[in-house]
Nucleic acid binder design. Sequence first.
DNA 1: CCGATAGCCGGGAACGTTACCGGAGATTGT
DNA 2: ACAATCTCCGGTAACGTTCCCGGCTATCGG
Lengths: 348, 348
Amino acid sequence: MRGHRRQTIIDVARQAGVSKSTAARALSDAPEISADTRGKVLRAARLLGYERNHLAVGMRSGRSGMLGLVIPDIANPFWAEVARGAQDRAAEAGSSLLVFSSDWDHGREARHLQALRQARVDGVIINPVADSFDDLDRFGLPFVLIGSSAERFPDTSSVGSDITQAVRLGLDHLISKGHRRPWLMLGPRWRIAQARFLRAVHDHCVERDVDPATLPTEDGEYTVAGGHAAMHRILAADRSAHVTVFAANDLMALGAGMAARETGRTCPEHVSILGFDGIPAGAFAWPGLTTIEKPARALGRRAVESLVDEIAGRADHGRIYLPCRLIERGSLADLTRAEAPRIPATAP
Amino acid sequence: MRGHRRQTIIDVARQAGVSKSTAARALSDAPEISADTRGKVLRAARLLGYERNHLAVGMRSGRSGMLGLVIPDIANPFWAEVARGAQDRAAEAGSSLLVFSSDWDHGREARHLQALRQARVDGVIINPVADSFDDLDRFGLPFVLIGSSAERFPDTSSVGSDITQAVRLGLDHLISKGHRRPWLMLGPRWRIAQARFLRAVHDHCVERDVDPATLPTEDGEYTVAGGHAAMHRILAADRSAHVTVFAANDLMALGAGMAARETGRTCPEHVSILGFDGIPAGAFAWPGLTTIEKPARALGRRAVESLVDEIAGRADHGRIYLPCRLIERGSLADLTRAEAPRIPATAP
DNA sequence: CCGATAGCCGGGAACGTTACCGGAGATTGT
DNA sequence: ACAATCTCCGGTAACGTTCCCGGCTATCGG
C-alpha cells in the first residue's frame, strides 16, 4: 500500500472514462466542459486520491506557484512577523513560500537567489544585503523590495514602513515629554536605513525649529549586543542627570536598557529609551519599552500583493509606505513636571 | 534583453557542440565523460548564464529538492528558531524549505499538507496540530515529527527535547533554592505535551520522595495572555507570602510576570518564576527570566538530518531527544537564607 | 591481425501536465 | 433542408531534464 504508484491525471481519465484532456479541463475548471462529465471526473479524482503534480504544471505552464522570500534572519522577531504575513497572503493566493535567511551576507544571499531561480519561483520578495544589489537588472525574475532599501531603485516596486511619519511620531512624543536633546542610536553606517532614519530626523527637526546638529549620535549593530555596547559608550560620554535615547531598532533599545541597568541606572528615572520596530519582547521588558511599531505583518502581506501584481504584468512600480504607530509603555520619563532626578548611586 | 528566453540544457549543448546527454552528464558531474568535454560544457553553461531547471529535474528524477516544514507559528520565537535551524541545514544539504504555519488549526494544517504533496516535496517536518494526526499512514510522504508529539507513533522518527532531563534540571534547581511546593502552570489539557510535562514532574517527584499530589496546577493557553490569566487565578487562590511558579512555556512565564506586577507583587521578592523554552525575550524581562532552554535551532537541524535519512531509505525510526540547559537569570528567589518576605502592599 | 573490452558519446523515450487543433454532434438561422 | 455556428471532447505536441540503450573509437591481450 505504501509503495503504490502515484495517481496521475491519466489514471483519473481512465477511471472516469474520458480522455486526459477532458480530465485536465475538469480539474482546472475550464469553461468548455459539461457539468455532467466534470462531475464524473471530479468523483474519479476523489476516489483515486488524485493530487495534481505541481512540478509538471509548472513545467508546462511556466508557473511554479511558488514565491521566494529572502530576509536577513527568520529568527529575528521583526522578520519572523514579516514572513508570517507574507506566508498567510501567499497561501490565500494559492502559492507556497520558500523562506531564506541571508544573515546580511552577500555570499549566502547570492546562493539563495540562485536556488530560487533554479526552483523557478514565480517571483521574489527580498530585503537585499547590499543597498547596491547590482545583480538587479539581470536578475531575470519579478521581485519586490521589502524594508528600507528602495531608495536607489526608482523602477522597482517596494514595500516599506513610513519612516518619515514614524520619526515625526517619535520626536513629537519625545518633545511633548520634555526630551529636547535625545541621543540617536543608529545602525551601521553602511546601511542605507541609517541614512534614511537620520535624514527623517533632520527634516523633522528643521520643521520644529531644532538644530539637528545638536543631536548626538552613536552607531552600533542592529542587535541587542550592538545596542548594549553603544549604550555603554553613550553613558560614558554623557554625564547628564537624565539621558534619553532614541534607538533605530527595538533590539538595540533592549540592549541599551540592559546596559543602563548594569551601570546602576534605572529606567525611566535616570534613563529614557524610545525604541523602533514594535517587537513583542518590548512588552515584557521592565519597564515596558515605549516604541514605534512598524506594521510588520501587514508589510509581508502587501509585499506579496505587490509581487503578484508584478508577476501578472500589471506593475505600477509603486513604492508603498505603511504608517507606523506609537506604543506607549513605561520607558520614557515625563520631564515636564518631574523634579530633577538625582545622579545614579553607582556609576561605572 | 529582459524578455529573453530562458537558456536550456539544449542551448548549452549546442553552444558546446555536444549532445544534450553529454551536456547533462557534464552538468551533473557524472563519471563517464572526459575532462576535456566537461570543461567545454561548463564554459558554455557559464557563458550563457545557464541555470538548471529544478522543476524539470524533479519531474524526471522524482526528487524535487524541496522540504516542507509545518509548525504552529513562524512568528513564535521558539518556532522561528527551529525554522532557522532547519533552513540552515536544508541549505547545506542543497534543498529549499517550504514553511507553513498551522496556527493549531486542523483545516489550515490539512491545506498546507495538501500544498506540500502537490508541490512534490521530498519530505516533511511537522509538529502536528492534533496529537492523533490520523492521516499519518496514508500520508504518502517521508516525514519526521518535531516537538512533543512523538509518543503515539512508535514507528516514525522524531526529534524533540528531553523533557525528563529538563524537568529534573528545573525541579532540582527549585529545590536547591528552597522552593518545595511550586505551582505548575500547564498548557491546554488536550495537548499531549501537557501530559508529558506532568508525567515527567511526577516521576521526578517520586524519585525525590516528594508527593506529586501536593503540587498545585493551573491550566492555560501557551501564550502570554494565557500565562497572564492563569497567574491571576493562581494569585487569587494562593495567599502565601511567596508564590513559586514553574511554567511549561516562556511566553506563559512572561505573562505570569506581568500579572504579578499588576497585583503589586515584585519578582523575585514575592514571586518566583521558572520558565521553559529559552526564548530571547526572557533575557530582556526584568528581572531576567530563569528558564530551561530547549535547543531550538539544533532541533531544527536534527529534524532535517533525520528527514534526509528517511528519504534516503536508511530510516532507523529513531526518536531523538536533545538535552536542555538551565539558564539562571534573576526570577528565582533564594529562599534558603532569606527571611520571610512581607505580604505585598497592594493586593487586588 | 582480430575479437573483446573499456571509455566516451548521441539518440530516443519518459516524467505529468496543459495548449492547441480539429472533429463529431447538436442547435440555430434563413 | 442546408449551411453555419456552437458545444464538447479526443489526439498530439510540447515543456526541460534524466535514464537507458546502443554505437563508435581506441586500447589491449593473444
